[in-house]
Design a protein around this nucleic acid. Structure first.
Length: 753
DNA sequence: GCAAGGTC
């Protein structure tokens, strides 16, 4: 009797097969799907790995039109299940039909159970069929897997239903609100606006933060410092800290007027342990990667790649505690084959290794750690940076604490108390390996109680309170985790989505007018979808479904009723909401006033083709300016110092950004556009933009001299000051992504290869 | 062309 085992992913299938077969599994291709095969107790076993969900929900085709579909009908429509990966489906179906036993061995969680249900449905087998079994394990270790397959359990339909309810509710709320917001504001097609259970509360965080910053009223405060002399100068701060009452500051200063000595009232000195950081989970990993310049999306992409190559463990994890099944010493031994040899040996030389542990402990995956040694020349720089980060973090979590000598002195000057703190590292501990963050050190001399030192000066410093900081991408990621928004696998994708929709821009993250407008509209008419509570409520309901206290159908029905009411309210206010968002988006594109007629200048995409800056009073006013056709354009609040025209910021992928004013005639451009000397007339040559926006090198002596050379239309052009030895034309440097080369601009130059 | 969740 053949046995079919279905795992969630390729790597899991391979591990399971290797463990069950005792290392003798054979890998065979069924079309494009690898299947692991082996014999065990006289039975033929097949192990296949899926690729996550193989079914996706979608509405029937008749409801595809955003404009024509009645949203209240969309709310109650049953979505269809579409098979996404047909190749896998047919192979699994075939194997299942021949199997006497089917073991679902997907990840042991809600989504894993649903993935199992999906594949059974495709194979036409009921989850209640006696030949269907479930293997439940929380780690891909020999012990866990062996036990799980010895104690097979029944398939848990209720758990799968919990996930299925989430799927349907997410799609309905997402599709209905996305369509409403987009169609009401005329944003249909590729510039649509979107709404979702996770993305909208996340956007709301950014918008609320921006509101706090905009409405922030700084408060003045003062701090009083005393410079004291003891061989070196020691600065002590008045014990009151920030004083918001100016009168009080004056009083204290008056009291201290003429003070000559300070007496040490209190002096303490102690060693303070500075414990190692916890092991990496996805969020902490991404936060640290951003410190070395990798965005969450980029860091995640690299980590996934390193994982697939067997260099680091699974990068999607919530866990911050090493499970006992990982042999930490043998990982260190493995690292001796890498450039981290010496460090690994140092850590190994400890008599006992005490790994640090974080607050979050789950059993699905271990924290992120290196699983094998890598060599620097085998990896790209970015891959090495991320690998090194994971290795150094791993070493740090196994290393002893750092030790700081901490000093505190309290001085008394005319009955007023001042404090000075000192902190110096005396043992490196884990900080020797983990060099990405430093703790500030302040040197302080030794004092003794009762000692009297000279007062050099006493002065106050005025300052003001600062608005809250904006979210960096990684801070946003951490806020999402804290609020239960998204999962370790989706959070960074959701942030990317907010950028794609142009709801947010930059890092730190700033919301755009359309981001503000959409959140404003949702807060008024569908507040729940802007709050993390929608997720926590759904989580509760899913738990109830899994615990068989409620039926999936009833949870979906309740959710539909709430959404129907929202749709009704939204439809009543369709025009008002749409106009508000439209106005906000106009502001987003608005660059400034037209110098000729006073109209609005904005970036216009002609038929989705060439882009330019044009006047809103067209055709009455024909003012227009060519702008570069490549690169991402953002508006700025700046005006050109020379010509007072609006300045735009252009970012070229792979290499920084430049700010230019939209006026091609402006002399402020001259420096930037300078490219060399015309070989025919000796005048200066510049980068110019033709009527179609195409750029070229032209002689400034035009029309008397008509020398012109074409330029590459992508990449950044940099002035080199050089001229071609063969033809005398200017030589420019072209930078595309990370590549750069020098180029004589004359296409007919004989010196060219 | 819609969401969020798996995974590549």
């Amino acid at each position: 009797m053949a046995v079919l085992v279905i795992a969630e992913k390729y790597n899991a299938a391979m591990r399971i097969a290797t463990i069950l077969a005792g290392g003798k599994a054979e890998r065979k291709m069924y079309g494009s799907l690898p299947v692991f095969q082996f014999k065990k107790d006289g039975e033929e076993w097949h192990v296949v790995g899926l690729r996550g969900h193989i079914i996706e929900l979608d509405f029937p085709e008749k409801m595809n039109s955003w404009e024509k579909t009645d949203l209240s009908k969309l709310v109650v429509e049953k979505p269809l299940k579409e098979v996404r990966i047909k190749g896998i489906a047919s192979v699994v179906k075939n194997l299942a039909s021949k199997a006497g036993k089917i073991i679902i061995a997907t990840d042991y969680d809600r989504e894993g159970e649903l993935i199992g249900k999906e594949i059974l449905e495709i194979a036409g087998i009921s989850p209640r069929d006696a030949k269907v079994k479930r293997a439940k394990f929380s780690a891909l270790t020999k012990q866990e897997i062996t036990e799980a397959f010895q104690h097979l359990q029944d398939f848990d339909e209720a758990l799968a239903d919990a996930a299925a309810a989430r799927q349907e509710i997410d799609l309905k709320w997402g599709a209905v609100l996305t369509r409403f917001i987009s169609t009401s504001s005329g944003r249909v097609g590729k510039n649509f606006l979107s709404v979702g259970r996770v993305q909208s509360p996340t956007l709301a965080l950014v918008v609320e933060n921006d509101n706090l910053i905009k409405n922030f009223v700084p408060q003045r405060f003062w701090e009083i410092f005393a410079d004291l002399k003891k061989k070196e100068t020691v600065t002590a701060r008045h014990i009151a800290g920030r004083i918001f009452d100016e009168q009080k500051v004056k009083e204290i200063l008056a009291k201290l007027e003429g003070a000559e000595t300070a007496t040490v009232k209190e002096y303490t000195e102690k060693d303070q342990k500075d414990y190692p950081p916890p092991p990496f989970n996805t969020t902490t990993f991404l936060a640290e990667a951003s410190k070395i310049g990798y965005s969450p999306a980029k860091a995640m992409q690299i980590a996934e790649d390193l994982y697939m190559r067997g260099l680091i463990s699974y990068p999607r994890t919530d866990n911050t505690v090493y499970p006992p099944t990982i042999n930490l010493r043998s990982v260190l031994q493995e690292l001796r084959n890498s450039p981290f040899r010496e460090m690994a040996e140092e850590v190994l030389s400890q008599e006992r290794i005490h790994p640090s542990r974080g607050k979050m402990e789950t059993t699905d995956h271990p924290p992120i750690y290196p699983v094998s040694a890598a060599q620097r020349d085998k990896l790209k720089k970015e891959e090495w940076d991320i690998y090194e980060l994971v290795v150094r973090r791993f070493l740090a979590t196994l290393a002893p604490p750092a030790v700081f000598q901490v000093k505190k002195v309290v001085f008394e000057i005319k009955e007023e108390l001042f404090v000075a703190d000192g902190s110096v590292m005396i043992e490196e501990g884990w900080r020797r390996y983990y060099t990405y963050s430093k703790r500030a050190e302040i040197h302080l001399p030794v004092f003794r109680q009762g000692e009297v030192v000279a007062v050099d000066s006493i002065h106050s410093k005025e300052d003001k309170t600062k608005p809250p900081a904006r979210y960096s991408q990684s801070a946003l990621l951490q806020a999402m985790e804290k609020l239960g928004l998204g999962t370790k696998s989706t959070r960074h994708e959701i942030i990317q989505k907010l950028y794609e929709r142009k709801y947010i821009t930059g890092n730190p993250v700033v919301p755009t007018p359309s981001g503000h407008a959409v959140i404003d509209a949702l807060k008024t008419y569908a507040e729940i979808v802007t709050k993390p509570e929608m997720t926590s409520k759904l989580e509760e309901e899913m738990s109830e479904i899994a615990a068989k206290k409620r039926k999936m159908e009833s949870v979906i029905k309740d959710s539909e009723e709430i959404l129907l009411k929202i749709v009704e309210l939204l439809e009543k206010n369709r025009k008002g909401i749409g106009d508000k968002i439209r106005t906000a988006i106009k502001e987003q594109h608005h660059l400034g006033r037209c110098g000729k007629c006073g109209g609005d200048l904005s970036i216009i995409h002609a038929n989705g083709k060439r882009r330019f800056v044009g006047c809103s009073n067209y055709p009455a006013c024909g003012v227009s300016f060519p702008i570069p056709q490549t690169g991402h354009i953002e508006k700025t609040e700046e005006k050109c110092e020379q010509c007072e025209m609006p300045v735009i910021k252009i970012t070229h992928k792979g290499h920084g950004s430049e700010k230019i004013c939209i006026n091609p005639e402006c002399t402020a451009h001259t420096e930037k556009r300078k490219i060399g000397v015309c070989p025919r007339c000796g005048s200066e040559m510049q980068v110019m933009h033709g009527k179609t926006g195409k750029r070229f090198v032209g002689c400034t002596n035009y029309p008397r001299c008509k020398t012109a050379y074409p330029l590459p239309q992508t990449g950044k052009i940099v002035y080199t000051g050089k001229h071609c030895k063969d033809c005398g034309a200017p030589v420019v440097k072209v930078v595309v992504k990370k590549n750069a080369w020098e180029l004589c601009v004359n296409p007919e130059c004989k010196g060219k290869k």
